[in-house]
Amino acid sequence: MAVLLIGAVADGQLVLDTTARAAAAARQLGEVTLLIMSPNADTAAAAAAEIDEVSNVLVCEHSSFGHDMAEASAAAIVSLAPNYSHVVGPTTSAAKSILPRVAALLDVMLISDVIRIHDQATFDRPVYAGSAIQTIKSRDLVKVLTVRTSAFQAAGRNGVAEIERVHAVEDPGLSEWIEDNIAVVDRPELTSARIVVSGGRGVGSQDSFSAITRLADSLGAAVGASRAAVDAGYAPNDWQIGQTGKIVAPDVYVAIGISGAIQHLAGMKDSKVIIAINKDEEAPIFQIADYGLVADLFEVVPELTERLNGSR
């Protein structure tokens, strides 16, 4: 069995943790060929070649790949697909946009958000915001799937894969990138951080959200938010954790001013330790938190931050 894995590339760099986790998942299905699509792929390809579990790296360069344009990316993947039994991608916004298009062009059904691989054709995936898990078996000849990266341990980095170049097929020219508005932050990636500090509606405003980010920085943590906080404009969209946002499973998840709607729990309930701070004793978040502190976040979060900074 041969697997074509779509590497995660952002700004010309390999997104290492995401790709290494997807590689570990893909290896359960067969020999892994990692595809790097980028306008200038050399740096990313060199990093990709070091990932254990990767046998070959394919480099495909085209100007339209810099911004994950789905039409051109899907066309390139479809042109390579006949050599593979599986096409696998991580659950990044890019792969979630591109791979369903690939699946349709191959006339196969997409299998999204896989959390467990039983065999070549049988997978577990959550449905209904994670309220249930389905074990499904595909009868398609080629399986196209996205794997939830938080559900797989990252492969190591001692590999020496061969790097080979392939030509991109012609860009169908259906869409054109205009601009990105992507914040550059000096914090760990949300989906690969060991600690995530997350704020909800209870935080109350965009200004007071700085209490959350300061605590996160004192812990070297990534920052997350509930949908309510993002909708209210307290936090940017890419911080959203939940059914329709990012899925995280850090060692420690600190939920602050988050009531714990099922849609939010869907994005964080596989964290190893959950700590909740909320002034409402009845908040549903306490039903799943390992440790809960019933308190006013505006008092305890600054105190906590100060103590952590002082103890370093």
Binding site: V108, M109, I111, T122, P126, V127, G130, S131, A132, I133, Q134, T135, I136, K137, S138, R139, D140, K269, I274, I275, I277, F286, Q287, I288, A289, D290, Y291, G292, L293, V294, V300, E303, L304, R307
Partner: peptide, 25 residues
């Protein structure tokens, strides 16, 4: 194209302990 073999509830989490102070936290 996909056959659902089984549908099950994910492992649940239980409510843990309430902490008394920031020190405990």
């Amino acid at each position: 194209r996909l056959t659902v073999l089984k549908t099950y509830e994910p492992a649940g989490r239980k409510a843990g302990t309430k902490l008394a102070s920031v020190d405990d936290l």
